[in-house]
């Protein structure tokens, strides 16, 4: 996936556990794990809003675009 979710780093900076974050954001720990492990295919704006609010950060602090290698012809 070309978009990387830097949730681990932000959680470390804010000293917040996965369980606490999941509770504050209002998502299940399983869904938070999907986000953390970069398995998510889409993120709702409402979830992003809740994450930014809980972690006191900007969406750009959480999401990063990583260029993927293009297959050669």
């Amino acid at each position: 996936m070309a978009i990387r979710v830097n949730l681990d780093m932000m959680m470390l900076r804010r000293h917040i556990s996965a369980g606490e974050l999941a509770e504050r954001v209002g998502i299940t720990p399983a869904n938070l794990s999907i986000l953390k492990n970069n398995k998510a295919k889409a993120v709702r704006f409402s979830t992003l809003d809740a994450l930014c609010r809980a972690l006191d950060c900007q969406p750009a602090d959480l999401l990063e675009w990583v260029p993927e290698e293009q297959p050669e012809d």
Binding site: L32, L35, A40, K41, A42, V43
Partner: peptide, 8 residues
């Protein structure tokens, strides 16, 4: 469904 299951 696959897409929806991985939408957080």
């Amino acid at each position: 469904k696959d897409e929806l299951d991985f939408t957080v």
